[in-house]
C-alpha cells in the first residue's frame, strides 16, 4: 500500500528514523507491557521503598517499593491508549462537524463556528477540567474530556479544507453530473481534506499525552493502582529530595515520547508538503 511505503520513506530520513525508532519502542511497550515488564506493577514491597536505580531495579522503586520501570512500561499503555482513543474520537467527530459546516454553510455553520471559536479561546486544560468537574473522574471521563478539548482544532481544520476544496472545479463538475451530497463529501471532499487532519491529529496526540499526564498529576485520571505517568510524577513530588528518580523517569518518558511524536509529525509535514494547509486554521 502506498501510504505504508510513504511512511517507510519518511522513517528513512534522519529526523524520521530517530523519532520512528522511539515511537516503535513506546508502542511495543504499550502493546506487550505484561511480557516486557520485569515485575508486577502493583506488587508493593515497603521495606524496599525508594531504592535508587540498581541492577535489580534499573529505574529504582517508588515509595511503596514498586518497580518503577515496570510501572513506566505499563504507564505507556495508559498514556497511549487514552491519548490515541481521545484524539481518534476527536478527529472523527471534528471531521464530521467540520465537513458538514464547511459544505452546507448557513445557520449550522454559524453555530458550529461560534461554538468552536468560543472553545478555541480557552486552553484545552481548562475545558478538560471543566468537563471532568461535570462528568466525574476516571479513564473514560478523561478520554471524553480530552476528545472534546481538541474537537475545535479538527473542526476548524476540516472546515477550512472543505471550504477551500468546495470551490474546486471538480466539485462543481461532479455536482453537474448529478451527484448527491454524500458522493461529493465522501468521494471528493474528505479524501482530499484528510491528510492535513490526520497529521494534525498525530501532533495533537503528543499534546494529549501531556494533557493526560497533567490530569493524572491532579489525580483526575486513571485511578490507583493503574499506573499513569502523570500520577507517578505527582506521587514523586513528595519524595523529590529523597528519591528524585520517581519523578524523573516518568517525566523523561513523557518528554521523549512527545518529542518523538512532534519530530515525526514535522517530518511528515515536510514530506507531504502541507505546512501551508495546516497554517490555514
Amino acid at each position: 500500500m502506498s501510504a505504508l511505503r510513504f511512511l517507510w520513506g519518511v522513517a528513512r530520513t534522519p529526523r524520521g528514523a530517530v523519532s520512528a525508532a522511539v515511537l516503535v519502542l513506546v508502542i511495543l511497550c504499550a502493546l506487550f507491557a505484561p511480557w516486557l515488564a520485569p515485575y508486577d506493577y502493583a506488587i508493593q514491597n515497603l521495606p524496599g521503598a525508594n531504592t535508587s536505580p540498581n541492577a535489580a531495579h534499573w529505574m529504582g522503586t517508588d515509595e511503596f517499593g514498586r518497580d518503577l520501570m515496570s510501572r513506566i512500561i505499563h504507564g505507556a499503555r495508559t498514556s497511549l491508549s487514552v491519548a490515541i482513543t481521545a484524539i481518534g474520537i476527536s478527529v472523527v467527530a471534528g471531521m464530521t462537524l467540520g465537513a458538514m459546516a464547511g459544505y452546507f454553510g448557513g445557520i449550522f455553520d454559524r453555530v458550529v463556528t461560534a461554538v468552536v471559536d468560543l472553545t478555541w479561546s480557552f486552553p484545552e486544560i481548562l475545558i478538560a477540567l471543566l468537563l471532568i468537574a461535570i462528568i466525574g473522574t476516571g479513564t473514560e471521563s478523561i478520554i471524553i474530556a480530552i476528545a472534546i478539548a481538541y474537537l475545535a482544532q479538527f473542526t476548524r481544520l476540516t472546515r477550512a479544507q472543505v471550504m477551500a476544496l468546495r470551490s474546486e472545479t471538480y466539485v462543481e463538475a461532479t455536482v453537474n453530473l448529478g451527484a448527491g451530497h454524500a458522493h461529493v463529501i465522501f468521494r471528493h471532499l474528505l479524501p482530499n481534506a484528510i491528510t492535513p487532519v490526520i497529521v494534525a491529529g498525530m501532533l495533537a496526540t503528543g499534546d494529549a499525552i501531556i494533557l493526560e499526564a497533567t490530569l493524572g498529576f491532579f489525580g483526575l485520571g486513571a485511578q490507583p493502582p493503574t499506573p499513569s505517568w502523570g500520577a507517578m510524577m505527582s506521587s514523586g513530588t513528595a519524595q523529590i529530595f529523597i528519591a528524585p528518580w520517581i519523578i524523573l523517569f516518568p517525566g523523561a518518558a513523557i518528554a521523549v515520547t512527545v518529542i518523538a511524536i512532534n519530530l515525526f509529525g514535522d517530518a511528515l509535514i515536510d514530506a507531504l508538503d502541507i505546512r501551508n494547509r495546516l497554517r490555514e486554521v
Partner: peptide, 9 residues
C-alpha cells in the same frame, strides 16, 4: 469547464 487543471479530482 474553463480550467481543465482543477476540473479533475
Amino acid at each position: 469547464f474553463q480550467d481543465p487543471y482543477s476540473a479533475i479530482d
